[in-house]
Amino acid sequence: MDFKRLREKSELKKSKSFDDEKDLKEIIKKAKKGDQKAFQELVEKFKAQVASIAYKMIGNYEDAKDISQIVFVKTYQNLNRFDTSKKLSTWLYRITINASIDFIRKHKKHRHEALESVGGELREKKSNVERAYQRNLIKWAIKKAMAVLNEKQKSVFVLRDLEGLDIKEVAEITSMPQATVRWYLHRARSKLRDELLRHYSGILEGSGIKYGM
């Protein structure tokens, strides 16, 4: 394991996510006064991140699209209540997480069935396109493993480990103390690892990931 390279990667991500806050505040002020163009700019700036978080929470592009649009409509309706001294991204991500959780609650039963059928389909296609199959199978296994996480575990895992936000920001978004965030993170990570080890280690091995006991 090359630790130096690992760290450099994370530093790069940090500097990338650092926004020009002052510029952004001006746009928010304009949008608050009802400037449509300014609001459009905000959408442009955040749509990929919002849709990406929704996708990681739900695992489906079309639903992620709908959810992120709900987020922007809600933002549009409530922007006058936004405190400009705070970070807009924190506010937006909180709405995104909440909208995703709402969606999961509404579609719980239906989603479970959908995942099952994808798994069956993939098993049949094995002889056809081996590599694409392998890739899809890993995706399926991971989505299936993610399903064991509860709402809070999933939210913190998505924000911290998949989106790369720092724990302080995750705590603000989820309105939880940092220690609680750390606890849920630890639960999420160990649950995921155990799930992958127990049920899908064969699939992961096909991709080169080995874990010999």
Partner: peptide
């Protein structure tokens, strides 16, 4: 070994949730 497994699984998870 344990770290490798976990780290690689995480990378895999990140990749499969890339937007």
């Amino acid at each position: 070994k344990e770290f490798d497994f976990y780290h690689n699984s995480m990378e895999m998870i990140k990749q499969s949730f890339e937007f």
